[in-house]
């Protein structure tokens, strides 16, 4: 996975000892038990037995040389909380979250956006203009779009509340094997 390897290298290269990440516990069943402070060995491994209990609002951030911590300050936010807060605080977000006519191709059940000429078209694929938006933004071109007319923040939240599929459905990265694969990625240092 590109995301995993690139992250490890970037962290090692500059010697960062603490990295804030935006993962949330509601994203996925196996994340419900993830700590807010997640300890990693020097090789970025995640050892479930070495994670520390978190009581009250007391966090133990002590670590040995070479160890690092991933900290997830928005662990307890849900997708709805995020959207409501963006609305309340007027936080700018990428226009890709809002519906607009965009050139797309349908591949393996996912709607992929043809952003520019870097996108490798398969034989026989012809981009079509569809009104689409993105619920999550992962690596291009791996994130799938959804067909939508929601062009404002309120409409996006409305669509989210009335929708019936989970947020991560549009990501190819999850397609290779359910629960256990998510945990495997965690151990590999994905999060």
């Amino acid at each position: 996975m590109w995301k995993t390897e690139g992250l490890k290298q970037a962290l090692d290269l500059q010697g960062f000892d603490v990295a804030f990440g935006g993962a949330r516990r509601d994203e996925e069943k196996s994340r419900a038990k993830e700590r807010i402070f997640s300890f990693r060995t020097a090789s970025h491994g995640w050892d479930p037995k070495r994670q520390r209990p978190e009581l009250w609002n007391l966090y133990n951030a002590r670590k040995a040389k070479g160890e690092s911590i991933r900290v997830f300050p928005i662990s307890n936010w849900t997708e709805l909380d995020i959207w409501q807060y963006i609305a309340r605080e007027n936080i700018p977000i990428v226009p890709l979250y809002f519906a607009a006519p965009r050139p797309t191709v349908m591949r393996d059940g996912l709607l992929l956006m043809v952003d520019d000429d870097r996108f490798p078209l398969n034989e026989g694929e012809v981009p079509a203009l569809r009104s689409v938006r993105f619920r999550t933004l992962g690596c291009y071109p791996l994130t799938g779009a959804v067909e939508s007319e929601a062009a404002t923040l309120s409409e996006v939240i409305q669509e989210m509340l009335l929708t019936t599929t989970s947020e991560r459905q549009g990501r190819i990265i999850d397609k290779d094997g359910g629960d256990a694969s998510m945990e495997k990625k965690k151990q590999e240092g994905y999060f």
Binding site: K33, P53, S75, D179, Q187
Partner: peptide, 29 residues
């Protein structure tokens, strides 16, 4: 089945674990 099960827990016998879950009603989160 919605809330049970964590592969690492089953396979590696994790002993410290609290799972946090979220829901909301009209009045409260």
């Amino acid at each position: 089945l919605l809330v049970d099960g964590l592969a690492a827990e089953r396979e590696q016998g994790i002993t410290i674990d609290v799972a946090y879950r979220f829901f909301t009603t009209e009045k409260r989160k």
